[in-house]
Structures are given as C-alpha cells and as structure tokens.
Design a protein around this nucleic acid. Structure first.
Lengths: 340, 340
DNA sequence: GTTGGCACTCACCCTGGATGAGTGCCAGTC
DNA sequence: GACTGGCACTCATCCAGGGTGAGTGCCAAC
C-alpha cells in the first residue's frame, strides 16, 4: 500500500516543509530531490498519502504539509540517526564541564540544549527520592531549634528547620548524627526512610521523643514529593521562532511552560535512559500543546532514572537533529551526576 | 507653564491610555472625566502638553499617547499611592508563608508578583556576599576529598568539592570545623573571609598546608561573584499581554530576560529598601527594552540590601498599582529573610 | 480664557480584479 | 499497469482605489 517511493515522497515533504515552513508542491519536490519521476506521478503518490492521512492540504490550491501521523511515520521509519558533529560534542563537554555545582549543571544543560536545538529546553532536577544519601548534618540554631541538612550524591541539598519540645544536648546530637549517617549514607532516600524509622528505638527511652521528632522531620524531607517537581526552563525566546500562525498561540504555550507540574507529567512518561521519546502533536497530553512536539529522554543510570530532560518545539522540527542533541545531553548529564 | 488643569489632562490621558491601549482624543477625555471644560479647551491644553513633549500623536489624525517624559511626570507628581486591598495583602502573606525553604520563597515571590501585576516578575536571590554565615560543614567524601557546605542566614546553601594533597584526619577536621564556625557564624561573608584568612596560622605547622587548602576554597566560595547572579523569572506569558505591536518585539525581550546578567544590571541600580524605583522607556539602559518600564525595589534590612526584585512591563502600565505590589512583596521578602 | 463650528488629514476597512502556485483529471505513451 | 504531459479549475495572496470617521488645528465669537 505504501511502496518505497511513496515513503520517499513523504520523507521529502517532511524535510522540505521543515526547511521552508511552506506547503510543498509536486513541482518543487521533484526539483529539490532526485525522485526520478515527474510531478504528475508525485501528485498521484501525494493523493495516496493524503488518502492514508499522512499529509494534508491547508487549502485547495496549496501544497501539502505533513500531518501528525505523517511525522510519526517519518520519525519511526524514515529518520536516519544523525550523529552530532564533533564540534557540537566538544561544545557540550567543555561547556558543561565548567559547572561547579548541581544548579550549575542543570542551568548549563538547559542553555546548551536550547542552543543546540534552537527550541525550548526543559531539564528536571534529579529526583530526590531516587538519589542516594551522601551526608546528613544536624546544625543547632538554638536550644530547641535545629537545622537539618541533607546532601545527596547528585549534589542536591535539602534543608528543614525543626523545633524540638525539649533541648537536645550536644552529645546526643553528635551521637544521633553519627548513627544517621552510618545507617543512611549510600542508601537511596526511599530506603533510607525505613532505616531512619528504626533509629529511635536504639536510644535511651528518655531521649526517644526528641530523636523521634528529628528523624520524623528527616523522613519527611526524604520523601517530600514537592522536591521532585523542580525543573529549569530555557530558550523560551525560541518560541517566537516557531513562526507565522504560531505566534498567536505563544500565550497559552508560555502559560503551559510555567506550569511546572504539567511539564513534569509530559516529560515523566519518557521511557528508559539512552532511549529518546518523541511525542507529536495530538499525542501530547496537554490541550495547549497539541501543536507542538516533545522530544525527551531520561537521564541517570540504566537501572535507575534520576530525571528527565527534553525540548518542546513545533511539530515542524528537525527530528533527527533534535533527537541526537537530546540524547547527547542526557548522556552527559547521566555521566556527570553519577560520579558527583 | 503647566497649570493644574493641564496636569489633570495629562493624568487623564495616561489613565485612559493605560486602560484602553488606544490613543485618547479630546472628546473621549471630557466624556470619561469631569474636567468641566469643553473638548476644544482640552485640545488647547493638549497642544501645550505636546509642545512640552509630554504627549505625542502616533499620526496626524489620531489621539494622543503619553511619551516617556509624560509617564515620568505622571509617576513623579501625579500618581497617588494606591494601597493594596486587604484581600491582596492576605493573599501575599498566606501564599508566601507556605514556603519551606529559600528556593521556595523566591519561586513563590516571583509567582505572586507576576500574578499581582500581571507582568513579568524578576526576583534576585539574596546576595551571598552580603548574607551572614549560619553554619559551615566539612564532609569527608574520601581520604583526600572533602565537601564544603556553607549555609547562610537567608537559607542559601553553597557547596564545593576540594581535593587535598594529603589526607586530613578526623580530629583535624573536627577541630577545623569547630574553629571555622566559632569564628564565622553571624559574620557577613565579606567579613568572614578575613577571619578565615587568619585560621591556618593557629594550627600546627604540619597541618597548615591542608588547612590552608580548605580555608582557601572556602574563601573562594564566600566571595564567588557568580553566586550573586542568580535570579528567578516568572510570568513571561504576560509579555503577550503587552499587546498589538508589542508582539513583534517579544523575541528580543525574551532574549533579554534570559540574559540574567543583564537583568541584574537593570535591577541592581535600584536604591534603598522601602523605596520603589521606576525606570521608563528610554531610561532603561538596555537596547531591547527601551519600550518597557521597570519597577523595582531592594529587599533586605534598611542598612544592608540583600537583593532586588521587580517587574518589567510595557511603559503603558498601571504605575500606582504596580509600585504598590512591588513594595508589598519586597517588604514581605525582607521580613521573611531577616528572621530565617 | 473658553467655546462652537468647520475644513482638513489620514489610518483603517472594504471591495474587486489580477496573479500564480498548485491541484485533479484525462488521454496518450512506454 | 504505471508513468507522463496537458489543461481546466480553485483559491489564497497582493494591490489599488474609494468611502468612512475619528481626531485635529484654526478661527471667530462669547
């Protein structure tokens, strides 16, 4: 039903449309590509492709543009993997190597991704619950006031202030600090919680209430879901590059991008690391973004994803290039965060 | 030269133009305001105001719009201070009280400000160098690897990884940690640096190189200027509300907003806390933002500003309302950060 | 100093015809 | 049966031209 040449025609249409932003006609197609057939033949193929729903006409006397279904086929079957240039690889490495801490890594990744793809980039901060504990610190702020500091292997720092009903002595605090760290360091936060729960029992009955308050607050910090919701966004100026009629819909798109929770849903459904997920137009589960495509990838180790990153752009985007960039940055971030 | 009525006319023009986004003519003016004179008289006043450069005509047969100079006069002399409604005050307090840590305070402030003013909001993270030290922690990551953690009174956390040439024993580290904290806690970071510089001499000669490496890295963290450059932005979707011809210039504006360093320059010139600074159109020292106005205020104690926050909007904005919102949020943030 | 009247300007809107890219269909060719 | 050239048709886009009306500046009168 879809022979080789029809697929070539579809590929050519996608490529030209991505390039020129204009509906592509049969004549232009044979001029720009070596299809070896006449415009009339291409027209027949186009009619067939339209019949199948892969391309459409904006209006009667215009050329064709790919539909979401067309892009989908293009991505699944036609897009060759286009590796990054070595210059681009170098740029990623040198720019991101300059980061001094986690915030910096995330910020720079967003910038890099936005610049490489010339689209809106989104990077989720590494999930807290799936990170491992590097260190827990208890800082006394006053007799009954305590600052809890949690440092994860990915470099995230979380803090909480706790009020205890009675003062906790320095000796007790030191003891507790040591106990917590021996038990938790290297554990994933989800696992650390169960370890923390057992700690109070190992203390003298008198001390248990205070210890319980502290470990309780720490357990809360370990499992705070809100902390998993942090994202960084960059390259919003590229929204305007979408062009033409898209400018009208910038508003809702910007609004959607500010709704970080929504974004995370969109990104969250990406599959395993090293795989790049593409969602196109109507496949995007958000009303205001049905005219966009989302290219995303998880980062982290293969067994345990830490977070997701990706870009949002017009369905008319350079899929092979974008996918390559997203994959490259995801790989870099994975590696960077795994060895601290 | 500018009698009372001419000023009223200017005020009326500004208010109507802000309201309707359209050049305002003499008839509309007398209809909407109780000026007590006829359109013809208003026309004479308008001619005088135009002569002085406070208003202008987009084209011959159109109404008048205020110039930057006109807005300036409006802000300086005509804008009554418009206090926030008690509902708005409550909204600010309850929403911001829910913040759990510094990141949260900043994020929520940005959102609040963007929502109140319906414009693009910018909040600078509290300056590191002007904050005071709450706690310094040394975490051993390996025999010669150390994680330095600095926590400030505003809740900022900075971290650095240091490699030492020789291993630092636990006793030494404990000693050093205690020494650093006794000396630095409560000090502003700028002052802490000088205190840190004296620490190595108080240690045994053998230990000095290691101690020196550590305090050196810490001093660097204390004075890292890049850390002062963090800002949060929100409400970019409101850019599209600028309307009309502004939509064209969204691109450069978004780009300017992504250049955080530039933003800080713009904000940085704000004066003391509790005062609100307004820069209008050509007064804004950035090429791509000459069609915008910036309303900003410092936050922090009166003697020592910690950072700046504000909004960027079209010169055609509700100055009294915006100034009130900016002042209110700045006050809240000042108070919130001063008592941790 | 203020007002009503009046001529004038000019952006904006609507209309209608010309233009041309692109299509679908069909008869003819390999 | 697949491909091709020719041809009539469609329709968005562009451009010119006339009408409309908001708003002004000026002037004479109050």
């Amino acid at each position: 039903m879809l022979d080789e040449r029809k697929l070539s025609v579809l590929r050519a249409i996608v490529e030209d449309y991505v390039d020129t932003r204009e509906p592509v006609g049969s004549r232009a197609l044979v001029d720009r590509h070596q299809l070896g057939v006449s415009p009339a033949t291409v027209r027949n193929d186009m009619a067939a492709l339209e019949e199948e729903g892969f391309i459409a006409q904006p209006h009667t006397s215009a050329g064709r543009i790919p539909t979401d279904k067309g892009y989908r086929l293009f991505v699944d079957r036609l897009a060759g993997v286009q590796p990054l240039s070595s210059a681009e690889r170098r740029a990623i490495t040198t720019f991101l190597d300059g980061a001094v801490d986690l915030d910096d890594v995330v910020q720079r990744s967003v910038r890099m991704l936005a610049q490489l793809t010339r689209q809106v980039a989104i990077v989720q901060y590494p999930s807290l619950t799936r990170s491992t504990v590097r260190h827990v610190e208890l800082v006394s702020l006053g007799p009954t006031r305590l600052l809890l500091v949690l440092i994860t292997s990915t470099g995230r720092v979380e803090q909480r202030v706790v009020e205890t009903s009675v003062a906790a002595g320095d000796a007790l605090l030191g003891d507790l600090r040591a106990r917590i760290n021996t038990v938790c360091i290297g554990e994933r936060l989800v696992d650390g919680v169960t370890k923390l729960a057992e700690i109070p029992q190992t203390f003298a009955v008198n001390d248990r209430p205070v210890v319980h308050t502290i470990t309780g607050a720490l357990m809360e910090a370990f499992t705070d879901e809100r902390s998993d919701e942090r994202v960084a966004i960059g390259g919003t100026a590229n929204l305007t590059r979408f062009g033409d009629d898209f400018d009208r819909s910038i508003r809702p798109m910007l609004e959607a991008l500010e709704e970080h929770v929504v974004l995370l849903q969109l990104l969250g459904e990406a599959t395993s690391p090293s795989l790049v997920t593409v969602r196109i137009g109507s496949e995007v589960p958000h009303e205001d973004l049905t005219r966009t495509a989302i290219v995303s990838s998880r980062y982290g180790s293969d067994v345990d994803a830490l977070g997701t990153l990706g870009v949002v752009g017009p369905t008319r985007m350079d899929y092979p290039g974008t996918m390559a960039s997203v994959r490259a940055v995801a790989r870099y971030v994975s590696q960077r965060l795994s060895d601290g």
